[in-house]
Design a protein around this nucleic acid. Structure first.
Lengths: 147, 147
DNA sequence: TTACGTCAACGAGATCGTTCGTTTTCGAGG
DNA sequence: CCTCGAAAACGAACGATCTCGTTGACGTAA
């Protein structure tokens, strides 16, 4: 069987809306979707959104729903951070065979940052390293379980 | 009509082989493909590779072919660097709405780098900035064509 | 009670990605 | 010339993605 995409393009758009709103009905998702620049000329039908949300719930477990009155309210099951981290990992594996540094190079190549952005980048790296160090310090007696 | 993927998963695998070999026949691509860890249990048929290469040439312009004797030799039309840069841009746009710094954060989150890797990262950034500066210095009379 | 509007439920179709089997072509060796 | 083997050409299938139209249920207002 073919490889099933964890999150497809349309599904990601819907997830972004759910992350922004916290939760939403089919109608609300449809409205938000049709505000997007790509869809203003090409509105998406109600039943389309409905079908997508069904699939995202039943087949992929990306969302769940609660019933509120007579309408379904959909809620994302995974956080934006976690989902995006997983998507990023898949991409790095697929394109760069997991080599994060090569991905960095491509990223810096994509749009050369300004001087200020370079500084912010360095700050980000310092911060990431500081956190990595903290994580590496404490485990004196808890080193037994390595995840 | 549905959005057509610039480079699909299988096509990317094939492109990687062509980049590594420079050029290759259908048979060679098939052989290399079936050496991959994911395909050893699941070999790909000759005609499958043939169809893919056809599409990659006719519909997508990713490769071209020359005839050598009676066999087609396929050659990638775009460099690995350029293609990967385009793929990366698409991904950043799709997932991060173009925000490269957020992509960086996700990347650093994906697999916390070691101290040595942090250093290499900083060196990379320095290098990228130096090149950016050089590009910004010289353009006294050559600023007319920006490509 | 009847009509109306909204919602979930179905069924279905178009295109794409991926996969092959089969047929045709064609050059080399007997 | 005939056969054999390898390569290209062709047609076809299946699941996945994305898209709707239609139908039936249900609550509300007239």
């Amino acid at each position: 069987m073919r490889k099933v995409q964890m999150v497809t393009d349309r599904e990601l758009e819907i997830l972004k809306i759910l992350w922004a709103l916290g939760k939403a009905s089919v109608r609300e998702v449809q409205d938000e979707l049709n505000k997007l620049p790509d869809t203003v000329d090409n509105p998406v039908a109600y039943s389309t959104v409905q079908t997508l949300l069904n699939i995202m719930e039943d087949k992929k477990g990306l969302v769940r729903h609660v019933v509120e009155g007579r309408t379904f309210i959909y809620i994302p099951k995974k956080s934006s951070d976690r989902t995006i981290r997983e998507l990023t990992k898949r991409f790095v594996d697929r394109v760069f065979d997991g080599a994060i540094d090569r991905m960095m190079v491509a990223l810096l190549d994509t749009k050369p940052p300004s001087a200020a952005e370079f500084d912010r980048l360095r700050a980000m790296i310092d911060e990431a390293q500081k956190q990595a160090d903290e994580r590496a310090d404490e485990p004196v007696g808890s080193k037994l379980e390595v995840d």
